[in-house]
Amino acid sequence: MTLNRRTLCLAAMAALCNVPLARAADYPSRAITIVVPTPAGGASDSAARLVAASLSAAWGQPVVVVNRPGAGGAIAAQAVMDAPPDGYTLLWGLSAMAGLPLVQKGVPYKALSEFTPVANVVELGFALFVNRELPVQNFADLVAYGRSHPGQLHLATGTLGEYMLAERVLKAAGVQARRVPYKGGAQLMPDLISGQVQINFGPIAGGLQHAKAGKLRVLATALPQRSPLLPDVPTFAELGVSSGTLSFWNALFAPAATPPEVAARLSAAVARALQAPAVQEPLRASGTEPLGSTPQQLAEAVEAASTAWATFVRDYGIAQE
């Protein structure tokens, strides 16, 4: 049989059209890498490793967590943007990364929506932690101390989400603090415990063990109601302080142009992983709530986060640095 150029072109087009289905049908057939934008040992990293272990066991394929901290998540984002869109390199994205292009120059994406959404994975509960040597017993004491010592409090932030929460709460309370940025919670916690910095609005999962050991004090949480892990700690709402409405989620994204069938397969696998007691129990024990979502639901969460960040930047006069 003789094949002319038109026949060959049509055959090539048909083959290309079938690529996504072929990829989805045997996905995953090799190791998957999850790129985490925070250092090892923090709340987001710990959640990512729990989910990765569960996915690996279910698939019989390695799921490797690689930490690429720095630049607010831009380094990790760039690594995933440079990867082939086949579902084998994923970004463990933080909700605050939706605001990164608004506050930082040189970010490789204009909007987090440029990535392929896969699944919203967990939501982190946040709390206000302070150094034990700071002469405050509650939030009212902190406000009084901060007002009488303007600019002398050092605020540690490990992510942009922590920065947003701190700005909202402290400005509402009339307290000034000097921001000291870190690459993540695992780096800032030793300095918070030693007193090199005095306050942090961070994930409950990152500071809970230190608070229970008496190394830190917890003054309030940014939760809808009191946490069963911290029943004696009031919420900011109870204290009459607005902490905003943005949820602090961690989600999985793939590079742009990843086949939707692959994203859907991944999303379903994450939902199953989050049902496992070996994943649920340690997450909830650390103040982290398992979520699970469809790609479309994550896309909607990204849109909400982008809007919240645009409003925050406008209302608080945050300059791009």
Score class of each variant (00 low, 15 high):
Val241Pro: 00
Ala12Ile: 14
Leu160Trp: 04
Ala127His: 00
Val175Arg: 08
Ser56Ile: 05
Val262Ala: 03
Pro101Thr: 15
Gly72Gln: 04
Thr159Tyr: 10
Ala98Asn: 05
Leu239Ser: 09
Ala301Leu: 12
Ala177Pro: 01
Pro117Tyr: 06
Phe126Asp: 05
Val36His: 02
Val122Cys: 09
Pro39Asp: 10
Val118Leu: 15
Phe248Gln: 12
Leu10Asn: 04
Val279Arg: 12
Val130Cys: 05
Ala269Arg: 11
Arg168Gln: 13
Asp232Ala: 15
Pro282Ala: 01
Lys105Met: 11
Ile34Gly: 03
Gln61Lys: 14
Ile75Leu: 11
Trp249Cys: 06
Trp249Arg: 00
Val107Asn: 09
Pro277Gly: 11
Ala222Tyr: 07
Arg272Glu: 06
Arg284Thr: 11
Ala53Ile: 01
Val63Ile: 14
Tyr163Thr: 07
Leu165Phe: 09
Leu170Val: 04
Ala211Ser: 05
Leu94Ile: 13
Ser242Ile: 00
Ala271Gly: 00
Leu124Trp: 00
Ala24Cys: 10
Pro135Ile: 08
Pro117Trp: 09
Ala177Trp: 03
Gly125Leu: 03
Arg265Glu: 02
Ala15Met: 15
Phe248Arg: 06
Ser293Phe: 13
Ala25Ser: 10
Glu133Gly: 06
Ser29Met: 08
Thr307His: 12
Gln198Glu: 12
Val270Ile: 13
Trp249Lys: 01
Leu216Phe: 09
Ala308Ser: 12
Leu216Glu: 01
Val262Gly: 04
Ala251Phe: 06
Ala254Pro: 06
Thr2Glu: 08
Ser286Gly: 08
Leu252Ile: 14
Pro231Trp: 08
Ala119Trp: 02
Ala186Thr: 03
Glu321Thr: 12
Val80Asp: 12
Gly125His: 07
Cys17Phe: 09
Ser29Glu: 10
Leu291Val: 14
Gln275Ile: 14
Arg272Pro: 04
Ile199Asn: 07
Tyr182Met: 09
Ala304Val: 10
Ala177Ser: 04
Ala310Asp: 04
Leu21Asn: 02
Gly214Ile: 10
Gln198Leu: 05
Val35Gln: 03
Arg217Cys: 02
Pro84Glu: 14
